[in-house]
Simulated scan of single mutants.
Amino acid sequence: MDTDGGGWTTIHTRFDGSTDFNRSFSEYENGFGAVNGEYWLGLKYIQELADKGTNEIRLEVTSKQDEDYFENYKDFKLLNGSDYVLSINPDTAESYPVLTNGFLAFAYLKGYPFSTFDRDMDAWKDNCARLERGGWWYRDCGSMNLNGEFCEYSCDHKTYSVEIGYYVYGFADSKQLKTSRMLIRRYAK
Rank of each mutant, 00 (worst) to 15 (best):
G134H: 11
A188G: 02
M144Y: 03
L79K: 14
F21Q: 05
N101E: 03
S95N: 11
T19F: 08
F32I: 07
Y166S: 08
Y160L: 07
Y69H: 10
N55S: 12
E163S: 09
N127G: 06
C141P: 05
I46G: 04
R186V: 01
V162N: 06
Y160I: 04
T10F: 09
W124P: 05
Y166V: 09
Y160E: 10
D140V: 07
T100E: 08
C155W: 02
Y39A: 08
N145D: 15
R23H: 08
D66Q: 12
R186A: 12
F103V: 02
G170P: 02
F114T: 04
S82C: 01
E67M: 11
T13V: 13
G6Y: 08
S154L: 13
L59R: 06
G42M: 03
A34G: 07
V98F: 09
C151T: 00
L79P: 02
Q65A: 15
F25T: 00
F70V: 01
L43G: 02
E60A: 04
R181L: 11
Y45S: 07
E60N: 12
L131F: 14
C141W: 02
Y73G: 09
Y69G: 06
M182Y: 02
K175W: 05
W8T: 01
N55M: 15
E71V: 12
K74S: 14
S18E: 11
Y108P: 03
E48G: 04
R185Q: 12
C155R: 03
L49I: 12
F70Y: 15
K110L: 11
E48Q: 14
T116L: 03
C128T: 07
F21N: 05
N145E: 11
Q65S: 15
F76M: 01
K44M: 06
R181V: 12
R185L: 10
V85R: 10
V98M: 11
Y73D: 10
T9S: 14
A50D: 02
S174D: 01
N89C: 04
A172V: 08
E67T: 04
L78R: 00
C141I: 05
Y108S: 14
F76H: 02
D120I: 01
L43N: 09
N127C: 07
Y112C: 00
R185E: 09
I88P: 04
F32N: 06
K44N: 01
T159K: 13
C128I: 06
A123T: 02
G53I: 00
R139F: 13
S95M: 15
L79W: 05
Q65T: 14
R133A: 12
G7Y: 06
N147S: 15
D83E: 15
G53Q: 00
N36K: 00
L177K: 03
L99E: 01
E152S: 13
I11Y: 03
